[in-house]
Structures are given as C-alpha cells and as structure tokens.
Amino acid sequence: MPTKDNNRENHTTDSLAYEVERAVFFDHPAMDALVTSFVAMGSEVWSAQRRIKVLESVLKEQGVSLDKINQYQPTDEEVTAWRTERDQFIRRVYGSLEQSGKAQTKYGPGMDSLRQEG
C-alpha cells in the first residue's frame, strides 16, 4: 500500500532490503570496513579537489587573485559551520568502521542458501 510522508502521496510500497554491504571478503571484517572507508575517502578528496577547481575558475573569471584566498581568515560563524561539515565528513568516511562487528555472512543475507543450490 502507498505510504504518506508529510501528507504527500509517495506511491511506494515495502521493498526487500539487501544488506550486502555487510558481506566479508577478508579474514577480518575490519579489513572490509577499511576498504570501504578508503573508497569513501577517495570520493571526498576528489569532490573537494573538483570543487576547488570550480572555485578557482569562478574566481579567476571575477578577477580575484589566489593571494587573497591564501590570506583569508574565516569568521566565527564560518568556523562553527565548517566544524559541523567536518564532522559530517568524518562520519561519511569513517562511519563504515563502526559497522565492522555487524558482518554476519560471507555473501550477505540470503546468499549462503544460493551457494547451496549450485
């Protein structure tokens, strides 16, 4: 049956979750979590690099020098906001490490029975 969210018709129904991200490929599940963490880190680093390229291009168009950027001091409000974003960043990158103990099966729920079927 459809569900409603904030009085909006969603036109959704229940789905069958597949938590394969908890699958384990290495001897210790922490290794799997670390790999996920490294991939997430790459995503964040590249996203930041790409954004810097965008900013530098825009600033150049506006006639702003890189010296002015290097000498910039953030406001108190910016410091607070940036800390919040930094903490969100840390959770995105390292959050998978918290899940190390939740791995339960080799291929994820449901997959062991598949392996028995040939």
């Binding site: 459809p2 018709e9 959704t12 129904t13 229940d14 789905s15 069958l16 597949y18």
Partner: peptide, 25 residues
C-alpha cells in the same frame, strides 16, 4: 494505482538501490 498488488519479485533492491524501484518515492 494506489491499490497495486505488488509482487515480491519487484521489491528487491536491484543494483543495491536502496528501496529498489518501489520503496523510495
């Protein structure tokens, strides 16, 4: 069709898309 009788085969999270095609608005 708010009364769609959704078969189980359509409810899977194919490609690991959370909620699949039917569970995420």
């Amino acid at each position: 069709n708010p009364n769609m009788n959704m078969p189980a085969y359509a409810k899977h999270e194919i490609h690991l898309q959370k909620g699949g095609y039917v569970g995420n608005p």
